[in-house]
Amino acid sequence: MRTVTSSDIADRVAEMVVRTNRILPPDVLAAISRAKENESSPSGREILGQLEENAALARESGLPLCQDTGMAVFFVELGEQCRVEGASLREAITQGMVRGYQDGLLRKSMCHPLTRKNTGDNSPAAIHVELVPGDGLKISFMAKGGGSENMSRVTMLSPAQGWRGIKEFVLDRVAEAGPNPCPPTMLGIGIGGSFELAPRLAKQALLRPLDQPHPDPEIVRMEQELLDEINSLGIGPMGLGGDTTCLAVRIIMAPCHIASLPLAVNVQCHSARHEEVLL
């Protein structure tokens, strides 16, 4: 049995949330630069250039990339042979997140759903914990903005609708969202599972780096087919028209009930901020 202290967890999380909000992942920045090379619309190229400039400025100045520093979402893989000492795992992650958002001058964006009173410290975080074999501890963090989250949807398709129904739903969603979620976006798509599992898979799918293809060639083909059709919509960077509406589609599939075909589309903006630490 390996022991990790809660103060170590809090420290690493505090550093991670600040860094993630200031430094765009290199694979996302590379995708934006590549899109700029291939974009035929002048306004599209201009917007993509501004995003590169914004990323460089945030990195140098320590300002967050976007004022919406997000709801803090964590995916944790906790080894069955790993024990957390001190505070609980959830408390440790929350303490680190709160400290990072305070000290790193990140925006506190969480509020009561009806009174809209701000909680004041960006808590609570969404913390998804999965027990895995071994003694490792991996904590992935995503700073998830509200604008793109609002454009996300979950639906229960009929099994007969199949891949065609999935594509139709995703394309309609992207078309209806138009400029709202800050395109070029990334789409995390959860296919299968259940009503609560599909959206979680969709969000988790967004953690896979853009330069890392899915191991299953069939899913690679599905992701590419969707990406090509989305980029034919012509919405373009910030909705001003162009070839770059979406930078990547990321799918996770899971078996589902014989009566169901759950589908979730989690829209992520171009400021796709996420990182992971191993403890």
């Binding site: 501004q50 976007c66 004022q67």
Partner: peptide, 13 residues
């Protein structure tokens, strides 16, 4: 008016 979304560091200047 539209301003560029997700370019908050740049616009703050």
């Amino acid at each position: 008016f539209g301003a560029t979304g997700g370019a908050g560091a740049l616009l703050s200047q």
